[in-house]
Computed example of a mutant assay.
Amino acid sequence: MRRPGRRLRRLRRVRRDDSGASALEFGLIALPMVLLMGGLLEFAVLLTTASMLDSASLQAARYGATGAQPASGTREEMIRRIIEQRTFGLVRMDRLRIDTKAYQSFERIDQAEGFDDANANGQYDTGETFNDVNGNGGWDADQGTPGLGDAEDIVVYEVRYPWPGITGLMQPIVKDIELSSSVPIRNEPYDIQ
């Protein structure tokens, strides 16, 4: 038969023993610290990529505005190459989307084609006459013409990139983030040949 005093002495000795406390404290703090540092790294790379994408979009739009034809390939391919070079591998080009629309003036950006509102309901209905500004044969809520435009056209470059993240730590929290850049620019008065 064991005496209760002996158990109490052991329990007191274990309570006073602080060996291993540092390991336990580290175990409790390590995971939140790793997550915080990973989140900060992810956020820093996200902001860097967004800034590079803005700068690359501007440079690509400047090139597109010149009307220059590259020695090899098309203007569209050159615009993609400029963005690829200026984002230093942080943007996967197979996921990058570049949309361009040409307008006759800055005022017409994101404006619908005009139409005769026969039933006065404030919206275009099939059968109502309309002004086909972009020449595609149908009424459009945005009168821009897809493409890089002609001399002195206004071209809006919309660049979109779904950010996949680099660590995957933040994926369950933030899901999908789309980086985007929009650059309106007037084409130079070049001659198309």
Score class of each variant (00 low, 15 high):
residue 131 N to P: 06
residue 78 M to G: 01
residue 119 N to V: 00
residue 141 A to T: 14
residue 178 E to L: 13
residue 84 E to Y: 03
residue 136 N to M: 02
residue 41 L to Q: 06
residue 51 S to A: 14
residue 45 V to R: 07
residue 58 L to A: 15
residue 87 T to L: 05
residue 151 A to F: 14
residue 136 N to V: 02
residue 41 L to Y: 12
residue 122 G to S: 12
residue 116 D to I: 06
residue 128 E to Q: 07
residue 115 F to L: 01
residue 55 S to G: 08
residue 47 L to Y: 10
residue 123 Q to L: 15
residue 169 L to C: 08
residue 66 T to F: 02
residue 112 A to Q: 01
residue 145 T to V: 09
residue 175 K to H: 03
residue 115 F to C: 08
residue 170 M to V: 05
residue 177 I to Q: 02
residue 143 Q to R: 15
residue 86 R to I: 07
residue 134 N to H: 14
residue 90 L to W: 03
residue 158 E to W: 06
residue 67 G to W: 05
residue 59 Q to C: 05
residue 80 R to K: 13
residue 61 A to P: 12
residue 150 D to Y: 03
residue 64 G to N: 14
residue 126 T to H: 04
residue 57 S to K: 09
residue 62 R to I: 11
residue 96 L to H: 06
residue 124 Y to P: 09
residue 121 N to G: 11
residue 149 G to C: 09
residue 154 I to M: 12
residue 176 D to E: 15
residue 153 D to W: 06
residue 102 A to I: 09
residue 135 G to T: 04
residue 67 G to E: 12
residue 50 A to C: 05
residue 85 Q to F: 01
residue 160 R to C: 00
residue 175 K to I: 02
residue 114 G to P: 12
residue 68 A to W: 06
residue 146 P to A: 14
residue 48 T to V: 13
residue 108 R to C: 03
residue 82 I to Q: 00
residue 82 I to G: 03
residue 148 L to P: 05
residue 94 D to M: 02
residue 108 R to Y: 01
residue 116 D to K: 13
residue 118 A to Y: 08
residue 50 A to G: 08
residue 141 A to F: 14
residue 107 E to T: 14
